[in-house]
Design a protein around this nucleic acid. Structure first.
Lengths: 213, 213
DNA sequence: CGGTTTAATAACCAGCCAGTCAGTTACCAG
DNA sequence: CTGGTAACTGACTGGCTGGTTATTAAACCG
């Protein structure tokens, strides 16, 4: 019998939670909450299912941790973007495409969005966390920036919150499209291209003559 | 023993499938595919679970029937909308809000969209049916109308398919918002108001000067 | 080293639910 | 009225999966 080259497991209390959450993010984004199997998450994290329960009390608890992890960097990003552009709003709006592309490259945004939309009905507190911690901040911040620009006379009259929604909606739908229909043969959308074309159209649509450029 | 006033069930072979599909639409829209219980669908259709299997082979089969039923009236609507406006494209675009409001009132649109987005990953052929039978027609039709308008010199340069996406995205996101975040305390969006404000902005953004009005 | 602690495993359980089927009952034809 | 048919029921089951636990072994310490 050959000598045992490597032990059958390692004790790594500190690293486990992060690895498990990362694996869970991937599986949840791929399958959604209900269809995700704890065994698969455990396997991808290189751990047994029992080990999951050393760090997370329930499947839902793990889901919450995933949402928190997915949320944190995005909130940061939104705040930074708004704060960095107190000036003419067209500069802020023109920056949107690159930022969106950056997050979309770093995280499985589409999968996460799908997950939240699909499971919101069955896990309301989850939708609440998602809304309060991320969406409200992003939409609220953008709305305020638009309202301020209206006060400065840069933006035409109209509901600022609706303007904010109008601005980001096509990008979101583009991401969802690529996740939903592209895998079954539909022509994918180039999200950055959507963002660029849309920003230009919206600048014409919502800015007063003098504020364009 | 009192006389049997009413029988414990009726034989209604013709009506059953429609009633079952209707009940299933409601439950699937509410819960999604995985979380929907066949017992609940059966109960809402006023039938036992066993009866479901007289008309549909599997749960997935029933899901397919529901998708078909949810698709049909919308295809009709899209075709009619495009066909009715060969003329200046701004007339077509201005009509969008009322039409959207009409369908949103008639069907659980938000629930259906959630269902499709949420389950697309686990049921690819479903996403394919949905895309090929409805979404491709709607987006394609609108794209063609926009391309034609470009050829007539009404619309600025830019990708017509992207323009089409830009036009409908805010309304879709509005519907999804009301379904996802409004139930947990977020301020809902008025979808018709979104549509109106967005159409005005997009008219300025995508039409050339002379084609506005 | 040997003893102790505890991270991690793997076999296990309980309950839920899609799908089945033997029996029941409405309906109809003669 | 009666016998035949098939629509319908509802109790059942097999498998799956979230969650538990008895056991094992890695790591640490004196």
């Amino acid at each position: 019998m050959p000598a045992q080259a490597s032990p059958k497991f390692r004790r790594r209390k500190a690293e486990r939670p992060g690895e498990i959450v990362e694996a869970a993010l991937a599986v949840f984004a791929e399958k959604g909450f209900a269809a995700a199997r704890l065994d698969e998450i455990a396997a991808r994290a290189g751990v047994s299912k029992g080990a999951l329960y050393l760090y997370f009390a329930t499947k839902e608890d793990l889901f919450r941790a995933v949402v928190e992890q997915a949320i944190a960097p995005n909130v940061q990003m939104v705040r930074a973007m708004i704060a960095a552009h107190p000036g003419p709003i067209r500069d802020l709006l023109r920056l949107v495409p690159e930022r969106i592309a950056a997050i979309a490259a770093a995280l499985p945004v589409g999968g996460v969005i799908k997950m939240v939309i699909g499971e919101a009905g069955n896990f309301p507190e989850l939708a609440r966390v998602w809304h309060d911690r991320l969406v409200a901040h992003a939409l609220g911040g953008l709305s305020e920036a638009i309202a301020a620009a209206q006060a400065r006379g840069e933006v035409k009259s109209g509901d600022p919150r609706t303007y904010a929604l109008q601005l980001i909606a096509p990008v979101l739908i583009g991401v969802i499209w690529d996740e939903t229909f592209a895998p079954v043969g539909a022509e994918p959308f180039d999200v950055v291209q959507i963002a660029r074309q849309h920003v230009e159209a919206m600048l014409s649509g919502m800015l007063v003559e003098e504020a364009r450029g």
